[in-house]
């Protein structure tokens, strides 16, 4: 029996995981998301990353971005490398794509703020 803390929501449920049989059995979570999280954690753990990307704008030298969906945990620093290669030159808006399908992982890197359209 393994234990995991669910990171899906602030409840932070302690999940009990039994993976001795063919099927992974999860108990202790308040909702189904917990068991999905536990199964993913044991097979292919995924995370969201949030960071910033450089811009050419003096009054907003960085633009906050995130991946549009979770990426494999072991690719976090690869994706960070890709993001660090970029300099944003356009006044992107919240939700605009900064990198499409980053490293073929099926997730876009998107802007998470309208800051560039608010600065002068």
């Amino acid at each position: 029996m393994k234990q995991l803390v669910c990171i899906v929501c602030p409840n932070g449920c302690t999940l009990n995981i039994d993976d001795s049989g063919d099927e992974i059995k999860v108990t202790g979570g308040k909702c189904k998301k917990g068991s999905d999280f536990a199964v993913a954690e044991l097979t292919c753990p995924k995370r969201t990353i949030c960071t910033t990307v450089k811009t050419v704008f003096k009054n907003a030298p960085v633009l906050p971005v995130r991946v549009s969906s979770d990426i494999p945990k072991d690719r976090i620093f690869d994706v960070m490398n890709e993001i660090n290669k970029i300099t944003v030159k356009d006044k992107l808006k919240r939700g605009d794509v900064v990198i499409q399908d980053v490293l073929g992982l099926g997730a876009d890197v998107i802007a998470t703020s309208d800051i560039l359209s608010l600065i002068t």
Partner: peptide
């Protein structure tokens, strides 16, 4: 800029901005 905001409100994982 990290995510996790709005889970209660919007049922979505939003960043602060």
């Amino acid at each position: 800029i990290h995510d996790g905001f709005g889970l209660v409100r919007f049922k979505e994982k939003l960043s602060g901005p």
